[in-house]
Computed example of a mutant assay.
Amino acid sequence: MSTFITDPLSFPTSQAGDRPARVHQSNSGPSPAIRWGRWFDWAERRRQRLALRELADDKHFLDDLGLTREQALDEANKPFWR
């Protein structure tokens, strides 16, 4: 239930030593910048895992990375959000 206050003098006032009253209520979700940042992280992770899947058959690249074929495929098969 919402309450509308039309008289500005009825707002609570703060006194010395009081913590300021919160005037604005923010939404409960993360800010859009955080959501976009997460999306870009997921897109990059997906791109890297697709590239790793392509390298899984090349033993020389895997040796350079220090991975076995099984480790590379296990990582490449993870969903992008993990």
Results as ranks from 00 to 15, higher is better:
Trp39Val: 14
Arg47Trp: 05
Phe4Gly: 07
Leu52Thr: 02
Gln71Met: 09
Leu9Val: 04
Trp36Met: 11
Val23Thr: 12
Arg46Phe: 08
Arg46His: 08
Gln25Pro: 00
Asn27Met: 06
Leu67His: 03
Trp39Met: 14
Gly37Leu: 05
Gln15Ala: 12
Asp58Pro: 01
Lys78Gln: 15
Asp74Ser: 09
Leu65Val: 04
Arg46Met: 07
Ala33Asn: 07
Asn77Pro: 00
Glu44Arg: 13
Pro20His: 03
Leu62Lys: 03
Leu50Thr: 12
Thr3Glu: 12
Thr13Tyr: 01
Phe40Cys: 09
Val23Met: 08
Ala33Ser: 11
Trp36Ile: 14
Val23Gly: 00
Ser14Trp: 00
Asp57Met: 04
Asn77Asp: 15
Arg47Cys: 03
Ala72Lys: 02
Asp18Trp: 02
Leu52Ser: 02
Ala33Ile: 09
Arg38Phe: 10
Ala76Leu: 04
Asp58His: 11
Lys78Asp: 03
Arg38Ala: 13
Gly17Arg: 06
Leu73Gly: 02
Pro8Gln: 01
Phe40Glu: 14
Ser2His: 07
Asn77Trp: 04
Ala76Cys: 05
Val23Trp: 02
Met1Arg: 10
Arg49Phe: 03
Arg22Trp: 00
Gln71Trp: 01
Phe4Arg: 12
Phe80Gln: 06
Arg22Met: 03
Leu62Arg: 02
Arg38Pro: 00
Lys78Tyr: 07
Pro79Phe: 08
Ser26Pro: 00
Asp57Gly: 14
Ala51Gly: 02
Glu75Val: 12
Ser2Trp: 02
Phe11Ile: 11
Arg69Glu: 15
Ala33Asp: 10
His60Arg: 14
Arg45Pro: 00
Phe11Arg: 11
Lys78His: 07
Phe40Gly: 03
Arg19Trp: 04
Leu50Ser: 07
His24Glu: 13
Asp63Cys: 02
Ser31Val: 08
Ser10Tyr: 00
Phe61Pro: 00
Phe80Ser: 08
Ser26Ile: 01
His60Lys: 13
Lys59Tyr: 06
Ser14Leu: 03
Trp42Val: 14
Leu55Val: 01
Arg45Tyr: 01
Glu54Asn: 09
Pro30Asp: 13
Leu62Gln: 03
Ile34Asn: 05
Asp74Ala: 14
Ala76His: 03
Arg47His: 08
Trp42Ile: 15
Phe4Ser: 12
Gly37Ala: 07
Arg19Ala: 11
Gly17Met: 03
Ile5Gln: 07
Phe61Trp: 11
Arg45Leu: 06
Asp64His: 10
Leu9Trp: 06
Ser2Lys: 11
His60Ile: 12
Asp7Asn: 15
Ser28Asp: 10
Phe40Tyr: 13
